[in-house]
Simulated assay, not measured.
Amino acid sequence: MTATRSTRQRDVIARVMDDAEGPLAVGDVLTRAQTDLPGLGVATVYRTLKLLTEQGRIHPVTLDGETRYERAGRGHHHHFSCTRCSRVFTLHTCPVALPSGTVYPGGFIVEAHEVTLYGQCPECAQAP
């Protein structure tokens, strides 16, 4: 494998991550990247996701026990997981008014929170 090919693969995978509407599983990244690079293998996707994570360009998100990846720097946000099509979307509004420093009943001091809502995305909700 040449350095040029490796760079092209990295660029395509980085673009897939930048264009994603929400966190992607490794298989999703592979499928989307194979549109431009049909011969792309899953090992290259794993290596590139590791590199992009180390560079701080993406970060892992664990949803339902599965690691997905999303672009870093999106600020405070939450996720919606469609129970029909399994896609995960980024929600930019926060359904929880619990700022950092809040003392939760029992003496728990809130530092951060994550929320995942489950249901049907608009596309699946309209499908028969």
Rank of each mutant, 00 (worst) to 15 (best):
M1E: 12
M1F: 06
M1R: 05
T2M: 00
A3S: 13
S6T: 02
T7H: 11
R8C: 01
R8N: 05
R8V: 06
Q9D: 08
R10S: 03
D11Y: 00
D11Q: 08
I13Q: 02
A14Y: 06
R15Y: 09
R15K: 13
V16Q: 07
M17D: 05
D19T: 10
A20E: 07
E21K: 10
E21F: 08
E21M: 14
E21I: 04
E21Y: 15
G22F: 10
G22P: 07
P23Y: 02
P23A: 03
A25I: 12
V26G: 13
G27P: 05
D28R: 13
D28W: 02
V29C: 05
T31I: 09
T31W: 06
R32P: 05
A33C: 02
A33S: 00
A33F: 01
A33E: 01
T35C: 00
T35Q: 11
D36S: 10
L37G: 00
P38T: 00
P38D: 00
G39H: 11
G39L: 09
L40W: 01
L40I: 05
L40G: 11
G41D: 06
V42H: 05
T44N: 09
V45Y: 04
V45P: 07
V45T: 06
Y46E: 11
Y46G: 14
Y46S: 11
Y46D: 14
Y46F: 12
L49S: 07
L49W: 13
L49Q: 13
K50I: 07
K50F: 15
L51W: 15
T53E: 15
E54M: 12
E54N: 14
E54Q: 08
Q55D: 13
Q55N: 14
G56V: 07
G56K: 08
R57F: 15
I58N: 02
I58L: 13
I58C: 14
H59W: 11
H59F: 15
P60C: 06
T62Q: 11
L63D: 04
L63Y: 14
E66R: 10
E66D: 09
Y69M: 13
Y69A: 14
E70H: 01
E70Q: 10
E70V: 05
R71G: 04
A72Q: 13
A72E: 09
A72M: 10
G75T: 11
H76W: 07
H77S: 03
H79P: 06
F80M: 11
C82M: 12
T83I: 01
R84E: 11
R84I: 14
R84D: 09
C85M: 14
S86E: 09
S86T: 15
S86M: 14
R87C: 09
V88I: 12
V88A: 08
V88N: 00
F89V: 12
T90V: 15
T93I: 05
C94M: 08
V96F: 06
V96L: 15
A97T: 02
L98H: 02
S100D: 11
S100P: 03
T102Q: 11
V103K: 05
Y104S: 02
P105D: 05
P105H: 04
G106A: 03
G106N: 06
G107Q: 02
F108A: 09
F108Y: 11
V110D: 00
E111W: 02
A112L: 10
H113S: 07
E114R: 15
T116F: 03
L117C: 00
Y118H: 10
Q120M: 09
E123N: 03
C124M: 04
C124I: 00
A125H: 04
Q126I: 06
A127E: 12
A127K: 10
P128G: 12
